[in-house]
Amino acid sequence: MPIFAAAVAPTRAELIDHLVRTRIAGDVATPRENNLSHYRKLANGDRHYWLGLELGDRWADEQDVLAVMAERCGVVDDPDHRSGQDTIDPEMTVGALDRAAAELRKAAEGQRRVLFATGHPGALLDMHGALARALRVAGCEIVRVPLGTYADEGVIVQFGGVATYERGASLWHTHSPEPMTQTLNALQLAGEALPELVVADHGWAGCAGQRGIDTVGFADCNDPALFLGEAEDTLEVTVPLDDHVADPRFYEPMTAYLLTAAGLTGATGLA
């Protein structure tokens, strides 16, 4: 059975086992065909797949994109593997979590101004919320989005300090960078300082990194842009994971591991 106990962080080996069993990593649900299609569209200049980054023509070769995804996410590196199962290397996931923890620790030590946001509210909202609570207790200022910030015919709302996109009284899954663009613009218009660190996913993360803000991103194997951003040092860290598995509670052990690695267990009551 998967681990659900958020109060105790798993060991590295236990977390890797959990990631594989829940398919957050290992043999993931996203098929190879979908991955390659997204890599091709990014390479062909489809900005929907750039996630707010400005990639120019630097990644116009699909094989270069695949090479980075194999190196940083753990997808199959064989260009002749065109269909069927694809993978995320759980060792790479945990390695990236360790690097993300270092960024959270640095934010806590400096009591930095941090913005959390998600384009995957159905899966990652609780994870981002737990991180936001821990950093708030550690003395960080968690950025509040100015009221009435609109984007893409919807509005930016926050739950537990996490910004997300609402439209038609529902929280939406979105890849668009526009919510982050409008959030940062609204902060500037209100005379408020921009965040010193953004922890986010999808276009929220890509846009923040492109604006020069230190950014920790979370990304699936069919969302190559954030991994390219990390390769170009536009993002500090991109954590590879399936970003929408069956139950949001499956991310709880990963969250506990991340908080413990960041030295934030005292802020959350983790033992």
Rank of each mutant, 00 (worst) to 15 (best):
L42M: 12
T215I: 07
L258Q: 02
E178D: 15
D223S: 14
D247C: 11
E14R: 04
A200C: 07
L171S: 05
G26Q: 00
P248S: 07
F227S: 15
T11A: 00
L36P: 00
A117Y: 07
I3H: 00
A132E: 09
A108R: 03
G119H: 01
G52V: 13
R82Y: 12
R112I: 09
N35I: 03
D64M: 10
E230K: 01
V75L: 13
A219I: 06
T174V: 15
V245S: 10
L53N: 05
G74H: 07
D61G: 03
V68D: 12
G266S: 01
Q210G: 04
E178N: 15
E252S: 04
G266V: 00
L258V: 11
P177G: 13
R136L: 08
E232G: 10
V20F: 02
H175I: 13
P248M: 05
T183N: 07
Q210H: 11
G122T: 11
T30W: 05
R40F: 08
A205S: 15
H175A: 14
P224F: 10
S37E: 02
D17K: 00
I24E: 03
H244C: 12
H128K: 03
S176N: 10
T268P: 00
F218Y: 11
E71Q: 14
D27M: 03
T265R: 12
L197D: 09
V155R: 14
Y150K: 14
L264V: 04
I142T: 05
V68P: 10
A193R: 12
P79W: 10
V145D: 02
L147W: 01
V94I: 11
D61A: 14
R40W: 07
W50I: 01
Y49Q: 06
G161I: 06
W172V: 13
L131F: 08
A123E: 09
V199L: 15
T234W: 09
L115A: 13
L66D: 05
Y150E: 15
E236Y: 02
M180E: 10
A100G: 13
L241A: 07
G84F: 12
G212D: 05
T215M: 07
G148V: 15
M69G: 05
G122S: 10
G95L: 08
P121K: 11
C207R: 15
F227K: 09
L259I: 04
H120A: 08
T265L: 00
